[in-house]
Design a binder for these strands. Structure first.
Lengths: 113, 113
DNA sequence: TTTATTTGTAACGAATTTGTTACATATCAC
DNA sequence: GTGATATGTAACAAATTCGTTACAAATAAA
């Protein structure tokens, strides 16, 4: 099973969980209460998040308090940053231009036969 | 079918494709030659990348030249950056953090006027 | 001790992802 | 024209994801 950070943040529910746990420590049931899906489903999401280091668990009696530990997001950030030079540049504008002409070609194509 | 940028970059093959197309325009077969999986598989990956705007196609005769158009990565970058303040405040992160808060101050200034 | 609460996990199913092969179409080269 | 090349896509299969319900175990509360 793939358990990397890229995969972890691909799921919108997990991104929401991260958003909650970044600001407040919560036990698992409290997290689950914010969603319409079942508690076991949330439990699995949190398990995955802990497995890739984005959430840490602090056990207190029968409760498990979860907090976000977002340093691992650096892996994604680093991957993206290496390409930042390609954004909002002439190159990027060229790409947008090409995308535009491509659409025009597709439209023209059917008729031109 | 989910077709957002988070999902697009979750797959390692697609990240590799992005890495190749960021630096050079290539037709589809040239991309496929760099991988062990089949050409139709690559074709589908590239289709998905174009559908979420990370790759643009320029048709030239029977060939389709692909280039990366990475502005959409900003969506992921923005999502991550909102949490940067929560990362372990290492010194090398401090610069970026300060830059961000400086921007926020500028924005806040307009409201307080 | 008895009961309620918090949680993990097994077992399962549906949907999605990711690959394949086979075939169709359009274009180039001769 | 004929044949090679570049590509899209349909049809299918295997693996994975993401949810469910049911049950077990540990702890707290009565």
């Amino acid at each position: 099973m793939r358990r990397d950070v890229f995969q972890a943040i691909a799921d919108p529910t997990r991104r929401e969980i991260i958003g909650m746990l970044a600001y407040q420590k919560m036990n698992l049931n409290a997290v689950a209460d914010h969603f319409s899906i079942s508690r076991p489903a949330i439990s699995k999401h949190i398990k995955m998040l802990t497995e890739c280091g984005l959430v840490v668990i602090e056990q207190q009696g029968r409760e498990r308090y979860c907090t976000a530990s977002l340093g691992q997001l650096g892996e994604v950030s680093d991957w993206i940053e290496q390409y930042r030079q390609f954004w909002n540049t002439r190159l990027d504008n060229l790409d947008k231009y090409l995308a535009k002409t491509q659409k025009q070609k597709k439209h023209a194509k059917r008729k031109s036969d």
